[in-house]
Amino acid sequence: MQKTKFPAVVATFLVCYAFWVLLTWSFKAQELAVGAGVSFLVALFAARFFIHEDAGWLFNPARFLKCIGYWLVIFPGELIKANLNMAKICFGGCTNINPGIVKVPTAMKSDYGLAAVSNSITLTPGTITMETAEDENGQNYLYVHWIDVKETDPEKAGEAIKGTMEKALKEVWQ
């Protein structure tokens, strides 16, 4: 566990406050003030469990818009494709599967990028990220359980699993 840093507190505070506003859905001054106080206290104590990086990308409009665009346009497309595939396998009696764990390299460096890529992979049915590893050159690898292994070559498997998603995410996080 790391020491609490200020950017982490700010990021956690913003998320907590957004959830407060969404869940109460009232804009009276006193409710907003109480929400801010509670969110700040929670952020102070809970921030050390979360990602420790500058959340400055939130305030960069271009990157923020690209992030929203990813979660609203590109990711649902991938999700629907993978879901149709999975439904086909399930209604086909679950016999034509070919499971395995492949190790794929990822271009992501930052914690935000890694978290986004591995969570996107886990959310698409058919692939689950099981472990991350870093080699001595700073190259990050993901171990992915794949229900229907088509490629065993790391580069090609990575392209098949997360090609479009990673290209879009690289514009937001490195």
Binding site: M86, C90, F91, C94, P99, L123, P125, H145
Partner: peptide
Amino acid sequence: AGTIGIIKMPDVFSRMQASTCVATL
């Protein structure tokens, strides 16, 4: 589809893959 997958898949990891179907779309 996800429920059928959970019942019929052969091992833990494949079952987990099928359950993702229920939780997402």
